[in-house]
Design a protein around this nucleic acid. Structure first.
Length: 531
DNA sequence: GCTGCCGGGTA
DNA sequence: TACCCGGCAGC
């Protein structure tokens, strides 16, 4: 299916973006999926001043204050017919904090049954972002420090389910100043604006003023941290989806912004996916109801390519866009030009990093006798995967130490770790990798354990990941297994052949079992008389 | 059947 | 992590 930008309308009137060959398949890792709908084309941008019901046409008329200072009326038939704009869905009681500014900014749309309808290029549909846009938030809070919190709350609830639209919108008809010199394009500008809006929202006197000084004191550093996080994740998409980008210097495994307060926590996290959590947390953000955070930092938003037969998952939106642009759309990878087409072909998924880590830990050897390369996710590409991390693979054995030394430094005995002898740990130097992208990453290589052998010293063998005891009788196997390769589970055929040496049982007999080596007593591979 | 030891369970 | 043991597989 080559048609692009498919925008299906569900029976409920919900527009969803559809990926080629993958329509409706939104069940991904954690089940939380966002599709991206990009609003393109010229749209009038401004602030809703009023919404009234036009009895003659049966539709709604929105009065919009445009950026140029003029006001305009727009019919909103489609929305009204679909009942979306004035829907009583709980979800629309609050401002969707993910909504961004004007123009061609990427707008994230829920594909769930309570999502909003939006038609590209239609100013009508620009109006129905829950009746408001992010601009509204700006102006709401921009109405001065004297504005009381309750008042703002009331404004935010103007779209409440029980209030007839005729009664809702006139409340909003008070003048809301609109910045007039706003640039109509430019991703960075929009992001700056979004960041400014969001950060100012969290620091707004409107939010802070009526509360106690203690709370204000708490909020202040929080907002500062939030600003920092905003700037740190500045490259994230304007849809509000926080993502870890290559330019983001934060630690990949802990992508969560530095949050210490529920306000900013819920605010940021609400942009990450799960609708229910988003709703509740956004609500709590608005009403400053400190609740225990529901989402753990381990949840990471990934971006999954929805192209047919392509399950590529990247950690950054830019990465997935680049992937789609180059691989599927056949565009020049060097070009930064993006018309937003890629946005339709990927979706956001949440990945529990804990689970991922568990999977990793099962992939990496847990035995202290094995040195492991840094973990590399088997199926998920972290940002550094976009770098040249081929050089990373196997790096532990290519440290300066090991380069200058014979490879035996990477060779380890694979005897069962039941030796009584104290092992000698030689931690390998931590590696600092500076990528061309400016990302530096380091890890501490697991120590290589050398053991004194009480018994006859046998050959030194090496072992790879998952390869605990290969039935190899000859020399060494290189330690540098490709770390990304899934650990080959040793089958029953890889069982170590029975050693020919006498074992403790045979030497000491059952009568002197206390003289056995511990491993023999535990029915483990004998350490004393190794082959 | 004996033996070595892997894999899993328990504290 | 130490300890223990069921059970598999080689001999």
């Amino acid at each position: 299916m080559n048609s692009k930008r498919l925008l299906d309308k569900s029976p409920a009137g919900i527009r969803v973006s559809t990926a080629p060959g993958n329509a409706g398949n939104n069940n991904h890792a954690a089940g939380n999926t966002k599709n991206y709908v990009k609003t393109v084309g010229a749209v009038d941008c401004g602030v809703i001043l009023a919404c009234k019901n036009d009895p003659s046409s049966g539709s709604f008329l929105y009065t919009l204050m445009l950026d140029n200072g003029t006001s305009k009326e727009y019919p909103c038939e489609g929305v009204a017919q679909n009942g979306i704009a004035l829907t009583t869905s709980r979800k629309e009681k609050h401002i969707d904090s993910k909504k961004t500014g004007c123009d061609s900014s990427v707008e994230e749309r829920d594909t769930g049954p309570s999502g909003s309808v939006q038609k590209r290029g239609s100013p009508t549909y620009r109006l129905i972002v829950n009746g408001r846009k992010l601009d509204d938030q700006t102006h709401v809070e921009g109405r001065g420090p004297g504005r009381r919190l309750e008042e703002s709350k009331r404004d935010l609830l103007l779209l409440g389910p029980d209030i007839p639209p005729e009664e809702q919108y006139p409340h909003t008809s008070s003048h809301i100043p609109v910045p007039r010199n706003r640039k109509a394009s430019g991703h960075a500008d929009k992001e700056v604006m979004a960041a400014t809006v969001l950060s100012s929202l969290s620091t707004s006197p409107m939010v802070l003023s009526p509360v106690s000084g203690a709370q204000a004191a708490v909020t202040e550093p929080t907002s500062r941290g939030y600003k920092e996080s905003l700037s740190a994740s500045y490259s994230s998409s304007t849809s509000g989806n926080w993502s870890w980008d290559a330019s983001d210097q934060s630690v990949p495994s802990t992508p969560s912004p530095p949050l210490s307060n529920d306000i900013s926590k819920s605010f940021l996290l609400s942009s990450q996916g799960d609708d229910n959590i988003e709703e509740s947390e956004t609500t709590h953000f608005l009403f400053e109801d400190p609740i225990p955070r529901k989402r753990k930092n381990s949840m990471k938003v990934m971006f999954k390519c929805l192209w047919k037969n392509c399950d590529k998952v990247l950690s950054t939106s830019s990465g997935i866009q680049r992937h789609i642009r180059t691989v599927h759309l056949g565009r020049n990878s060097d070009s930064d030009y993006s018309d937003g087409e890629e946005d339709f072909y990927y979706s956001e998924i949440e990945v529990n990093m804990d689970t991922l880590s568990e999977g990793l830990s099962s992939l990496t050897p847990t035995s202290p006798t094995t040195a492991a390369p840094p973990p590399i996710f088997p199926t998920v590409e972290l940002p550094f995967s976009e770098l040249d991390y081929a050089s990373v693979r196997g790096a532990p054995c290519h440290t300066p130490l090991s380069q200058s030394a014979p490879s035996t430094l990477c060779h380890i005995r694979t005897d069962h770790a039941y030796q009584a002898t104290a092992p000698v740990s030689i931690p390998m130097s931590s590696k600092l990798i500076q990528s061309e992208n400016g990302i530096s990453m380091s890890w501490q290589s697991p120590p290589v354990i050398f053991k004194g052998l009480p018994g006859p010293v046998s050959q030194i063998r090496t072992v790879g990941i998952g390869e605990k005891r290969q039935p190899t009788q000859h020399a060494t196997v290189t330690k540098i297994h490709t770390a990304a390769a899934p650990a080959p589970k040793p089958s029953t055929g890889t069982r170590k052949p029975r050693g020919e040496a006498k074992k403790c049982r045979k030497v000491y007999g059952m009568e002197k079992k206390d003289m056995w080596c511990t491993a023999c007593r535990w029915k483990k591979a004998c350490q004393r008389f190794t082959d």
